[in-house]
């Protein structure tokens, strides 16, 4: 689980091009959207594709992402329970 969390932090910084953010800046329970990391709806769509491509999880409705993408903690939990690759 810790490795997956680390992996997700790296991926998010990389995919979303968060140049000024370091891995250690992101805490497991920080909000990814809104006041936390400041991600927006376009980032959510990027994350949906990442879930499909890297973990074989398909989300048909962008609204489903809302609960899953709350924090690194929630993402890691969902991925570890639902991943197909």
């Amino acid at each position: 689980m810790e490795a997956l969390k680390q992996e997700l932090k790296e991926k998010i910084i990389n995919i979303l091009n968060l140049e000024d953010v370091q891995i250690e800046d992101v805490n497991d329970n920080d909000a990814l959207f809104g006041d936390g990391l400041g991600l927006d709806s376009i980032d959510a769509l990027e994350l949906i594709v990442m879930m499909d491509k890297d973990y074989g999880i398909k989300l048909a409705d962008p609204k489903e992402g809302k609960a899953i993408f709350q924090s690194i903690e929630t993402m890691a939990k969902y991925i570890s329970e639902n991943r197909t690759k």
């Binding site: 995919i15 376009i42 769509l45 990027e46 594709v49 499909d52 491509k53």
Partner: peptide, 9 residues
């Protein structure tokens, strides 16, 4: 497949 929206937008 696996396309993301940012560059399209």
């Amino acid at each position: 497949e696996f396309l993301t929206p940012t560059s399209f937008i």
